[in-house]
Amino acid sequence: MENFKETDLKQLRPGLWATVNERYPGSMITKTDFVPLARLKKPLPESRIAFISTAGVQPKNSLPFDTVHPVGDYTFRRVPSRSKPEDLEIHQLKYPTVGAKRDLNVIFPIERLQELTEEKIIGELAPNFFSFIGYNMDALKLEQTLAEDLADAVEAEKPDGALLAPA
């Protein structure tokens, strides 16, 4: 199996990358160490799938994400995968939530994933999905704290595969 080579590195949207780096200096980092490709070990109809999102989606009445902190919030929330959209809310300042307010599935497609499971296209959903906010200005802390904590929490759900979605 061919793995990613450093020579293949290509910034898909260099203009956007430069703009964000200008507005939030140093916040855009370059990663050159790609993890090996991990394949599903079971067919999808037998697999347990997790979903992880930076959309800042959380159960109502859970501690809101800290959207005001100048350096960001390095916590995550568990979102029970059986939740209904009306049980959830978004705390996130930095992306347009106009569509999500009318239909959460545009950014956190929980109902579509539930339907695909009912139809047996997906074996089952992990008991919890996960969400955090993307405004994190300390990339090292993001990697060493949030990403590590989140990886442990996801692994505890014993998924066979995970879908990761930005906001």
């Binding site: 959207t67 978004i90 300042l93 992306y95 939530t97």
Partner: peptide, 19 residues
């Protein structure tokens, strides 16, 4: 927090999302 609280009270919310 107070900054965003008073911005919210002003009724003019420029941000794309919510607190």
């Amino acid at each position: 927090h107070l900054h965003f609280y008073f911005v919210g009270r002003s009724g003019e919310w420029i941000h794309d999302g919510e607190l």
